[in-house]
């Protein structure tokens, strides 16, 4: 799977004339929390995407993980400073993407 290099969202919409929301959204995020994606952050990701009726993948380079699986995401070994690409596909993708991006930005609200 190719990795998006742009810093902003790469929103793909296969039917340009219909003003529906895009079904596939891809965005780059940075792991900012000091201990990287370990159990607690991964569980927050899993909880966020659990009810989503579509697929959510995290890419680290060419390695990908199913965001619904804690074990899969942990094994990306994403330490602090790792750049990841999130890819959300399905109905309500943009809205979910915003929530995921917020989680990363808030550093998973760890230890508050």
């Amino acid at each position: 799977m190719p990795v998006a290099t742009g810093s902003d969202s790469l929103e793909m919409n296969n039917s340009n004339h219909i003003p529906t929301e895009p079904s596939l959204v891809r965005r780059e995020v940075l792991v900012k929390n000091a201990n990287g994606l370990h159990l607690l952050p991964c569980s927050l990701i899993a909880r966020t995407v659990k009810e989503f009726d579509g697929t959510v993948k995290l890419f680290r380079g060419s390695q990908s993980a199913n965001a619904k699986s804690i074990m899969d995401v942990i094994q990306l070994g994403a330490v602090c400073g790792t750049e990841l690409v999130i890819e959300v596909e399905g109905h309500g993708a943009s809205e979910l993407m915003d929530r995921l991006e917020q989680l990363f930005a808030d550093e998973f609200m760890t230890d508050r």
């Binding site: 607690l40 899993a46 659990k50 199913n66 699986s69 074990m71």
Partner: peptide
């Protein structure tokens, strides 16, 4: 709550679809 969160994470782990 901070300590409860550890078990919340366990709960997600127990429902990990790939596992």
């Amino acid at each position: 709550d901070k300590y409860g969160a550890i078990f919340q994470a366990h709960m997600e782990l127990a429902q990990d679809p790939l596992l």
